[in-house]
Amino acid sequence: MIVEAKSAAPPTEDERRLRAPWRSVEIAFWVLAAAAYLLLPHQLPLLAQAAIGGLFALSVDLLLGIAGVMSLGHAAFFGIGGYVAGLLAQSGWGEPLSGLVAAGLVAGGCGFLSSFLVLRGSDLTRLMVTLGISLLVMEAANRMTWLTGGSDGLQGIDVWPIFGVWEFDLYGRTAYVYALGVLFACFLLVRRVVHSPFGLTLRGIKGNPRRMSALGTPVGRRLVGVYTLAAALAGIAGALLTQTTQFVSLDVFGFDKSSEALLAVVLGGAGTLYGAIVGALMLMELETLLARITPEYWQFWIGIAFMAQALYARGGILGFTVRLWTRLRRGVAAPSRTAP
């Protein structure tokens, strides 16, 4: 069937919407993040951790919010990346950027291999398989004491200055700039992917995998692709953590790591990318606050936060804000029409 292209060209509005140009809010977000370096000099170590958590949550959002794949074991790749960077630095190669690349490659490779196990069956099976694999990886790291230092963690990590110039300092200045820079670079990549044909396909798969295959899309293969990419990004986040703290322990594989990233994504609003970063920041602030109030039992309140989120705040903070915003702009009238 041939569609006649001679009809009037589509309005430029179509092109603008599909191109997803940068909005001023987005630019403001990054300017603000950069300005934090000057505005919050005492918070920098914490903000660096938030940027790392944000990158990890971003990788989970790519998987969950964009492609609709749920994982309870994404920390496996975070941990693998962390240990790759740690082992490299420990064995005498402390150059940070190449460490990140190596971590991303190894974690991505592991993600690629395990994707064939993960991406079958229902949501429930996926949850269990991802959980099982992450526990398996953690247990392996725990047993391979000669390589990983076991439960003591990896000692003696010496990371060189970035570009051979900027050394990591005690005030977290370098760490923050470095972490934010890497987060921004990865964000650009993810944003690009999400608004590409491949990204649109992923959103389609999330919406309706059955129809996607009727449209000629090999759903499994696309998911292998995004799972690999998400694993690589998680690995980079893990490597960042190792490099900025000069330490890595088995905690990086933990179940709470995986589930907190899920919470961060949902808290901020799944599928919005920014939501993942904001959610990770909020969760970190919340944990720091709780840890100050009840140092031993802060997990209780985090648990409560999980439950409240699940029950009352679907769509997340950002989702809520966006809904409110569009509602206000459209004028409060216009009730949404829904199909039977």
């Binding site: 599909l18 191109r19 690009r192 608004h195 590409s196 044909p197 990204g199 692709g225």
Partner: peptide, 13 residues
């Protein structure tokens, strides 16, 4: 998808 360019991840829509 039909045109076989649905795997492009580096270019815009």
């Amino acid at each position: 998808q039909r045109r076989g360019i649905a795997t492009r991840w580096w270019s815009g829509l």
